[in-house]
Amino acid sequence: MTATFALIHLAPGDPFAGALDDPRVTQAVRDHWRHVYGFDRSLPDQYVRFVAGIARGELGYSIARQEPVRTVLARAIPNTLVLMGIALLLSFGLGIAIGVVQAMRHGSLTDRAIGAITLAGYSLPDFWLAQLAILAFAVWLPLFPAGGVVDPVMHPYLGPLAAALDRARHVVLPALTLTVLSAAAVARYQRSALLDVAHDDYLRTARAKGLSERQVMLRHALRNAAAPVITLFGLALPGFLGGQVFIEKVFAWPGLGALAVDAVATRDYAVVVAVAIVGSVLVAIGSLLADVLAALVDPRRRTGAIARPLPPVPLRV
């Protein structure tokens, strides 16, 4: 929070830079509005007021949008959660499945080919992939709308079923773009986690019991290799918020990410801070969720017998 405050005040300009720094506006007018919103006070003074406001649960007022930050957030959060939820589910489902297939064919041509693809997916710039997706599936092959949550013209006239379909069509491209980017990371984690346990004795015991390779994988290996992927899941929750910043902007998806981009551009301090707070709440929720999941999967973690290991590669979603 303090870091957010410091960063945004280090950036040049203030919320009135665009509107008031016009040479035709007199200095008196500028000073008047800056005084009304408190930007003529000293930074330490502004900081104290900032912290006090947040402590009271007041998120403040968006100058750029001329409405309370609470209202702005309430509109953006559901959009972000829908996109995040779908993309999280898809990318972890798909990523784990890919990792399992790779680990079962470890060293084969299939494994290496998929490895090359996931490495590419892992290193693609998100905004580039997003624009490519729009170009491919909205312009060249116009299967899906290029942006927005619903059809801006027709949506109010659609029946309930058609309206739901309209929403679904709009979520496809941004969700798929996010999924491609993060499923690649999940697959790489899952594969390396499975290879880490591949030589463990209990898998040999499972084979000695008469289990098929697939049963050995799904009943024993996957559960023992869950920890790194669960840790990744906990980090992915806030990570997706960051990953969605550019995706939402490109797809004109009115969520927290797009909101953050606009707020920074217009020096809308209160909104930037509010988004940062939502981000830190997601960090806490993600970490809590990861701990709960890890304890569910591994009984030794319930008693603190072993600690949650750190993920083997840095996170990028």
């Binding site: 004795d201 209990y202 008469g210 559960r223």
Partner: peptide, 28 residues
């Protein structure tokens, strides 16, 4: 073949390994 082995392992031939700590699945 693989299915033939599944019918033998654990059913007609049982095996006990040296270190039961690592030979048992720790999370089940």
């Amino acid at each position: 073949d693989a299915s033939g082995w599944r019918a033998v392992r654990g059913a007609r031939i049982g095996m006990v390994f040296q270190d039961a700590m690592t030979a048992l699945d720790p999370v089940i």
